[in-house]
Design a protein around this nucleic acid. Structure first.
Lengths: 98, 98
DNA sequence: TGAATATATGAACAGATATTCATATAAGGA
DNA sequence: TCCTTATATGAATATCTGTTCATATATTCA
């Protein structure tokens, strides 16, 4: 069954959005491209942890980089990100049935 | 910041879709309401594991139940599920840039 | 060249998560 | 009532995941 492959990819894709640190990073990047250090300061997470998550986001092709001297700017590489996040937000807002 | 609460809820929401067993259960339920045992057979996962995941899906209000004798039928309770999954699928299909 | 800054990376650790196993509950049929 | 079937549930376990810590790499500046 080739279906298994799709299910795996789907779960991997959603896994990206299942962590608060990654969501916060993406939230920052949706505003504008940002350096690792600036992301770290904005979301109050160590530069190392941010770097690890960014490398994860990069490996899934959701963010891209631009190097300027010793600074590396990260930005959103895939416009599905906005759609997905907004889709989730919509669910949450309606979901006051909890 | 009230924003933190939203980020938490968002990550919890996406976490649901980040597991292959849950995705497969939802896939089955999107076709039609199904009993625990039938789900277990269809996706080849123990009834106990399925039951655990169903209780998780139920706690997040994504599925609902209907009892008929000793059989319990589960079905989709939230139409966002279809939208979210299709959104993810769309991403994957375009994403042959990997 | 040497120091400082920005980022990356591997290993280790802690916490979270999914499954299994044993058991419990509930309903139907003999 | 007893047995069987369907589902639920708690504990234990094994795996996965995110962070930290130490260190490495790369770039700029003095």
């Amino acid at each position: 069954m080739e279906n298994i492959k799709i299910i795996n990819e789907l779960s991997e894709f959603f896994k990206v959005f299942s962590d608060t640190t990654r969501l916060r990073i993406l939230e920052v990047l949706l505003q504008k491209e940002t350096s690792v250090g600036d992301i770290s300061n904005k979301i109050k997470v160590s530069a190392s942890a941010v770097s690890h998550q960014l490398s994860y986001l990069r490996s899934t092709n959701l963010v891209k980089t631009r190097k300027e001297g010793q600074v590396i700017y990260y930005s959103i590489a895939d416009n599905h990100i906005k759609v997905i996040i907004e889709c989730g937000l919509e669910h949450i807002k309606e979901g006051i049935k909890l």
